[in-house]
């Protein structure tokens, strides 16, 4: 490393800082994780660890009473999120490429609008959207969620990708053109492979945003036809009206966290890979 070796004092400081951040970030996850293995009796015991580990909560959401509610919601979540992510990535790739490469009037306006949309509070849009969706028949449909999700994912995707595309050396594309490529070939063979890490990162961010949404999910759906998991969790019920379904909710929360963790682990290398090294003089 160019920064050189850390002194032992610095190392100790960094270690403590890292542990602190890790604890702060991971403790809630760990807490939900152990809660999902607690029996109903353990839930109120005020202890971190369950006295007996049980799969009951998972059984309940996958094969038990909450099965229908959870599994359809999971299907909705996966479907809606994947479609929204795919559309967002394709559109933002084309848009960001144009922004990074071409000079056209209104470039600033597009970027500015994207930024404005992304800082617009979701909660203020949701009520008019609810009314509009009901009128035009998009209420409680997949498409009815995909469209608002695009409004969340597109701006950030356009921004991250256009920043990323700007770093890709222009000359590579020109070299490909002179080498005999068409504009499309130059884009696909010289630019896309280099842009892939950026596109992956963007896709993952877009996926998280859509996956984690709660406000649209709860407001624009009413039945299992389109209700995603975060919204469905609110509809879990305990065995009796005096029992909170905390265990089942925890189990469901852990299940929906898994794709996120898997994605990050899977694409970690793509996200951080320094593919552009060596393209130009380093």
């Amino acid at each position: 490393m160019a920064a050189g070796k850390l002194t032992s004092k610095q190392r100790v400081a960094w270690t403590f800082l890292t542990i602190g951040v890790l604890l702060y970030a991971l403790f809630p996850v760990a807490s939900i994780f152990v809660t999902s293995f607690k029996t109903q009796a353990d839930l109120g015991s005020n202890q971190f660890w369950p006295t007996t580990w049980t799969w009951d909560n998972y059984e309940m959401i996958f094969v038990g009473g909450a099965q229908e509610l959870f599994l359809t919601a999971l299907r909705n979540s996966i479907g809606i999120t994947l479609i929204a992510t795919a559309v967002a990535v394709v559109l933002s790739t084309l848009c960001a490429y144009a922004i990074a490469r071409l000079n056209f009037p209104g470039k600033r306006i597009i970027l500015g609008t994207a930024l404005a949309v992304s800082i617009f509070p979701v909660i203020s849009v949701v009520t008019p959207l609810f009314n509009l969706w009901r009128t035009i028949g998009l209420y409680d449909t997949w498409l009815g969620l995909i469209i608002p999700y695009l409004s969340l994912t597109l701006p950030i995707s356009i921004w991250t990708l256009s920043a990323f595309f700007r770093q890709i050396p222009w000359e590579l594309e020109q070299a490909a053109l002179v080498d005999g490529a068409t504009q499309w070939q130059a884009f696909r063979k010289a630019i896309v492979p280099l842009a892939a890490p950026g596109v992956f990162t963007t896709a993952i961010i877009a996926f998280f945003i859509a996956w984690n949404d709660f406000v649209y999910g709860i407001s624009l759906t009413s039945t299992e036809a389109a209700r995603p998991v975060p919204a469905a969790l609110a509809f879990f019920t305990g065995a009796s009206q005096f029992e909170e379904p905390t265990g089942a909710i925890s189990a469901a929360a852990i299940v929906v966290t898994i794709p996120v963790v898997v994605l990050v682990l899977l694409f970690q290398r793509q996200i951080v890979s320094g593919l552009t090294q060596g393209a130009v003089k380093g």
């Binding site: 070299a175 002179v178 080498d179 280099l194 593919l275 090294q277 130009v280």
Partner: peptide, 20 residues
């Protein structure tokens, strides 16, 4: 004519090698 139909080869200042 677009570059590909001119059948010329170019060497760039920054080499412009495809890093992947």
């Amino acid at each position: 004519k677009p570059p590909r139909e001119r059948n010329v080869a170019m060497v760039f200042q920054n080499y412009a090698l495809y890093p992947h």
